[in-house]
Design a protein around this nucleic acid. Structure first.
Lengths: 340, 340
DNA sequence: TTGTAAGCGTTATCAT
DNA sequence: ATGATAACGCTTACAA
């Protein structure tokens, strides 16, 4: 097996020094057009391949750590898609890892990423993350943006959507447009800050409405299956006028439970995240859209700006969520999902 | 800002040589317990962090390239989840990239991964990939496994499910269990090999059944929206007895179109991949389950074995798909999705 | 515009 | 069991 072709070989072949060869590679320094073309030709004929790893020993690496709780959750998939495309478009590559929402895994992965010398970090922290995580990252001193979830009490750079506003939009719609008098907030991690924020928004909407509304706070996992179970239980124990689900997966489960029990339309359901299949759920889901892909892009652009020195610190960014109204809250029953 | 702590610092602090320090780090070589503990203490007090990049300059790197068409497709999410967990559990990290099913992107990303010295490659090739891709990877000479899609005519190591068998299972069920006389295969990339293979299985099932079946081959994108459109068109032009969809997203779209037009149950629908929301679709989807997560794990384990020298070459593996029967093909109409 | 040479932080070979 | 020392392939002052 032939030895790897290195920059020295290229230089020798082109009759220049390593420096010059390096210059044409990186675009740095001044090189005459003639030399540049000669070097480029040599690169071509020798089949030279740049060694990013070796280069990273001198300058900053071009890999960025990306941490998410789960890789296969639809919403995270959208976010990751935005992150990845932004990075690779700029010549960076993402080391993606999943914590499965476990703090010990998160610590381990953080450590591994650090050992891999990532130039920056984009992290959707595990739900139970606290200040220890923030401190660990701070002491590491790498450009970091928290994405979609932030750590309670932390003021670290954060890109996400306005959860309070999202909760508000959902509750406001149920109360004002549909006159709901009893609302259940269903699902989401117990200790999660998003849950607390959305509930705050809900309370705000209820207060503004001035009407007496009975709000029930129900914990459940954030999966389709959990939503299905919860839906059946709610049918058994008495349905509220409206249900705000922590995400669309839960909402789809609930919707299906209503369908199973012949209670379609017996309550209004609002989901969260507006993932693709929400459109074709029966009924199609009214949902709070947060624009996962765009959030991912924004976060990625943000750390890239810092790395390249364009910005001194990562910028925080709070996106405005939108309420996508569909059948599940009663407005379009019998309507056509294709037109929504 | 303090200089990075290196192995030299550790060695000095512990009063040993770099070599010895390196030995305790990697577990290689013989080191007395006393020395080992002394070094470990120094690592602790100095806050030393291993530099994977520097190490990769000497030994093989511990990053592996993972290429998929789209990161946010439910099935790929499941696959990626399996790949990632297997890699990180073994101390490897995945550089994940998405080609968006475009060959130029795929070439570019391949190049980037190569420059990053990945130790191996796991790739779900873009649909239109041909022998040029195989040749490029071959000449690069890195342990590679093709995952979930293979390149026409190639005999490269491949981990996937038996597409022919999958098509067979679907068609056989429609014909034998339900006596369908007209079947439409809907969706999937025109030039895709999976499509061709599944259709072969369908034909085989039809031939075996001995009955006269009218098979229509309908192209469409593999999205919920496309399924929705196709469903409406089929309703307009006349529904076949059964529809085999290239994936569950299409199937959910079709199901919704039937619902919209009041034709639920008017034809039998079979999806593919058995993604989570298929369970709560209305009707819940009969689907060919391919076990995405497990496929991902298998592929990952396979390349890891090669890297560590346990196996001479990557092993191919063809998983047996299973038909998950639910309401959408008429067996359980009115049944309870929760029990499926 | 181009060349010289000193790192970057490991691993691995060969002595001792 | 431990230590010197030469790679690994690139970037970047500084010199010419």
């Amino acid at each position: 097996m032939a030895r790897r072709v290195t920059l020295i070989d290229v230089a020798r072949h082109a009759g220049v020094s390593r420096t010059t060869a390096s210059y044409v590679l990186t675009g740095t320094g001044r090189v005459s057009t003639a030399t540049r073309e000669r070097v480029q030709a040599s690169i071509e004929t020798l089949g030279y391949v740049y060694n990013e790893g070796a280069a990273s020993l001198r300058r900053k690496s071009r890999t960025i750590g990306v941490i998410v709780p789960k890789i296969d959750r639809p919403f995270f998939g959208e976010v990751l898609s935005g992150v990845e495309s932004t990075f690779t478009a700029s010549g960076y590559m993402a080391l993606m890892v999943a914590t499965r929402n476990r703090l010990d895994q998160q610590d381990r992965l953080l450590r591994m990423l650090r050992e891999h010398q990532v130039a920056a970090l984009v992290i959707i922290p595990a739900t139970a993350s606290d200040h220890e995580l923030v401190d660990a990252i701070r002491s590491w001193d790498v450009p970091t943006v928290f994405l979609s979830r932030y750590v309670r009490g932390s003021t670290e750079p954060y890109v996400g959507s306005d959860e309070v506003r999202g909760g508000y939009l959902a509750a406001d719609h149920l109360v004002r447009a549909h006159g709901c008098r009893s609302i259940t907030y269903l699902g989401g991690p117990t200790r999660g800050i998003a849950r607390a924020d959305r509930l705050e928004g809900v309370h705000r909407a209820l207060a503004e409405s001035g009407s007496e509304v009975n709000l029930v706070d129900l914990i459940s996992e954030s999966t389709v299956e959990a939503g299905l179970r919860a839906g059946h239980e709610l049918v058994g124990s008495g349905l509220p006028d409206g249900i705000i689900c922590h995400n669309d997966s839960i909402a789809m489960g609930v919707a299906r439970a209503l369908y199973d029990t012949g209670r379609v339309g017996a309550t209004r359901i609002i989901g969260y995240d507006d993932i693709v299949p929400a459109k074709v759920s029966v009924p199609s889901l009214t949902s709070v859209a947060t624009g996962g892909q765009l959030l991912g892009e924004t976060a990625a652009r943000s750390v890239l700006a810092v790395i390249s020195g364009a910005e001194p610190a990562v910028r925080s960014h709070l996106a405005e969520p939108r309420l996508i109204v569909r059948e599940s809250c009663g407005d379009h029953v019998g309507g056509d999902a294709a037109t929504s």
